[in-house]
């Protein structure tokens, strides 16, 4: 397990990261979500030991201190020695982790193949495309078989094809490492993550499993319009146990239902029972985007 405990970091008067605590299990993937400036990169740099925290600790399996040998790190904008070839860079990276030349070369070939870079590996990195560099960035993070991978925006700068390739790699590599990665592309989080950490202004605003987050999304909202629409009718509806929240919007009402079976049928029943005329009924299921916005606003 990797534990991030009460980590805080300020730059001047700005609290970039403010008392953040969460954990990542090996073999699972945690997504760090949040708008630009939420403190994601700062937090990841602290976890990767490239930045010191003002307070708080990062531990792996109970050990704190220099954890760099257990971590593979991909920065947001990976910059390589462009005069090296892909495999030279990989071997150099591997040897800095203490692998022998042979081990590093073997491991490099294996990862290059997984990343689909075998054909380019003997060419200078200077001539590589952005997507190839991003995949090389992923591969170099794994050269030492780290227990944890820390990836800063691994997919955000890629086109849809590149994004899919990197997400596939993450899915494969999740089997043997814990992954902590940041993104602001919400739909990607849904693909690979097990846990989700929403950050805003340096603080965690929501920390839940992906299922937990999706079950929030799973509770559907229904937009209804009835005549006559009275305050009394609304108040009674709001008191029903299967209603989570009720919002009035012009002449319609948006009812957010508790998750679970049959809440929508109960709503329909309530409408017919109270004898009002139903003029509009629309069901919608909020996407991750809506939860994101909702969480960020609250």
């Amino acid at each position: 397990m990797m534990h991030i405990r009460n980590v805080s970091k300020s730059f001047g008067r700005v609290h970039a990261v403010n008392d953040v605590t969460f954990s990542i299990a090996k073999g699972s993937c945690t997504t760090l979500l949040g708008p630009n400036g939420a403190g994601k990169t700062t937090l990841l740099s602290i976890a990767a030991k490239l930045l010191s925290a003002d307070s708080g600790t990062v531990e792996i399996d109970g050990a704190a201190g220099d954890l760099r040998r257990h971590i593979g790190f991909l920065p947001q904008f990976p910059q390589f020695y462009s005069w090296m070839t892909g495999s030279e860079y990989m071997i150099y990276a591997g040897r800095l982790h203490g692998l022998t030349k042979k081990e590093a070369a073997l491991r490099s070939r294996e990862l290059m193949e997984q990343a689909g870079l075998t054909e380019a590996e003997e060419r200078k990195i200077a001539g590589w495309s952005g997507g190839m560099k991003q995949r090389l960035g992923m591969a170099q993070a794994l050269i030492s078989r780290p227990s944890f991978l820390i990836l800063d925006e691994p997919v955000s700068a890629l086109d849809p094809k590149g994004r899919k390739e990197v997400l596939t790699l993450m899915e494969e590599w999740k089997a043997f490492t814990g992954i902590l990665y940041s993104t602001h592309v919400l739909s990607d989080a849904a693909v690979v993550s097990d846990d989700v950490v929403f950050m805003q202004d340096g603080k965690i605003v929501l920390y839940d499993t992906m299922e937990g987050v999706q079950s929030r999304a799973g509770s559907s909202s229904i937009r209804i319009a009835v005549t006559p629409l009275t305050d009394h009718w609304c108040r009674d509806l709001e008191r029903a146990p299967w209603v989570r929240e009720l919002r009035q919007e012009n002449d319609a009402v948006i009812v957010q239902l508790e998750s679970g079976e049959g809440a929508d049928r109960k709503l329909l029943h309530y409408v017919t029972e109270t004898g009002v005329t139903l003029t509009h009924w629309e069901t919608y299921r909020p996407a991750l985007e809506d939860i994101f916005l909702e969480v960020m606003q609250s």
């Binding site: 490239l50 760099r68 040998r69 920065p75 910059q79 020695y81 990276a93 982790h97 960035g137 030492s144």
Partner: peptide, 13 residues
């Protein structure tokens, strides 16, 4: 400046 040092210093060196 070019940040080529980041991925080196993230290793146990």
């Amino acid at each position: 400046k070019a940040q080529t040092d980041t991925m080196i210093l993230a290793r146990p060196v």
